[in-house]
Structure formats: structure tokens, C-alpha cells
């Protein structure tokens, strides 16, 4: 019993730990969002919140339904794999209501976004140094955006 008494101060220290842990649990209870861990190591409610965001992209299937001509041109050309909205930007509002005019594109800045020469790009990806290649002339002057390849001997 007296041994117990002489170790009393140790229990006081241990008690501090218990209190600190209890405080931690209480704080944790209040700061961790309710839905945390519902599906995984994140706030479950976040999925609903993100799903509620307005949609910005319509997807190329939507465009192709109305702009079949362009879809056909594109399919035959080198940009077959490039999505409409990769160039035109998000156009969900236009697809829902065609009276909303999409913004005009400036090919002088649009095309080099993908085609600017860089050592980091795979060697077989078509790339040009815009200064040397066209010295500032809009790419559209020579290339058809929806079917960009220029056939040898074809129109410049």
C-alpha cells in the first residue's frame, strides 16, 4: 500500500496522458467530418458535392450529333483522336443551347499549345518551332484545323 503511495505521482502523470487523450478524442469527434471514411480515406459527402458542380464539357458525341460534317472531316484527318473540346474549350452550355455562340479561337496560340517543339515530347509527335515554321502567321492560314495535314504537292 505504501509502495502504491510512493508511486502516486506517476499516476498523476499518467492521468495527464489520459486527459490529453480524452481531449484529443473529443476534438477529433468535432473536427472530423461526419461522412469521413464512408467509402474510403476521404469525406464521403465530397462525392455528392462534386457531382453537384455544373457540367462544363459536353463530350464529342454531343458535338458530332449536330456538326456531323466537321466530325467526318476530322475523322479522316490527323486530328481524328483529338477531342472537339480540347481545342474549342468546354462548350456544354452551347450544346444545350446552340444560340450561345462559342468563342472564336486564335490559332496562333492554340496550336503551339500542343505542337511547340520540346525535348520532353516523344520524338514521333509532330512538333514545330513556331518562329521558324511560320514566323507568327496564324496556323489556320495553311492548315485546316479539322484536318491539318498538308499533302505533299497540295495547296500551301
Amino acid at each position: 500500500m505504501s509502495r502504491f503511495k510512493d508511486a502516486g505521482h506517476l499516476f498523476r502523470f499518467a492521468f495527464l496522458f489520459v486527459v490529453a487523450f480524452a481531449v484529443f478524442l473529443v476534438v477529433r469527434h468535432f473536427v472530423v467530418p461526419r461522412s469521413f471514411g464512408e467509402y474510403g480515406h476521404y469525406r464521403g459527402a465530397a462525392i455528392g458535392e462534386i457531382a453537384a458542380h455544373p457540367i462544363h464539357f459536353a463530350g464529342h458525341q454531343a458535338c458530332e450529333a449536330c456538326h456531323a460534317d466537321i466530325a467526318d472531316t476530322k475523322k479522316a484527318g490527323k486530328h481524328a483522336t483529338v477531342n472537339c473540346e480540347a481545342c474549342h474549350g468546354p462548350l456544354a452550355n452551347h450544346a444545350a443551347d446552340p444560340s450561345i455562340q462559342p468563342a472564336k479561337l486564335d490559332t496562333a496560340v492554340l496550336c503551339i499549345r500542343c505542337h511547340a517543339a520540346s525535348a520532353a515530347k516523344p520524338k514521333d509527335f509532330p512538333q514545330v518551332d513556331a518562329e521558324q515554321h511560320s514566323s507568327g502567321v496564324a496556323c489556320e492560314t495553311c492548315h485546316q484545323p479539322h484536318s491539318p495535314a498538308i499533302q505533299a504537292g497540295g495547296a500551301k
Binding site: S2, K5, D6, A7, G8, H9, L10, R12, L16
Partner: peptide, 19 residues
């Protein structure tokens, strides 16, 4: 800082040393 315990009997200090 004493946590309310002023027990510094030789026994308690011996326990402290061991712990």
C-alpha cells in the same frame, strides 16, 4: 509542475530512478 505531489521520500525517488 509537481502535479500536486510533493512526495520526495527516498522510496519514491528510488521508484523514479527505476522508471
Amino acid at each position: 509542475m509537481t502535479l500536486g505531489s510533493s512526495n520526495i521520500s527516498p522510496r519514491s525517488l528510488a521508484i523514479d530512478r527505476k522508471v
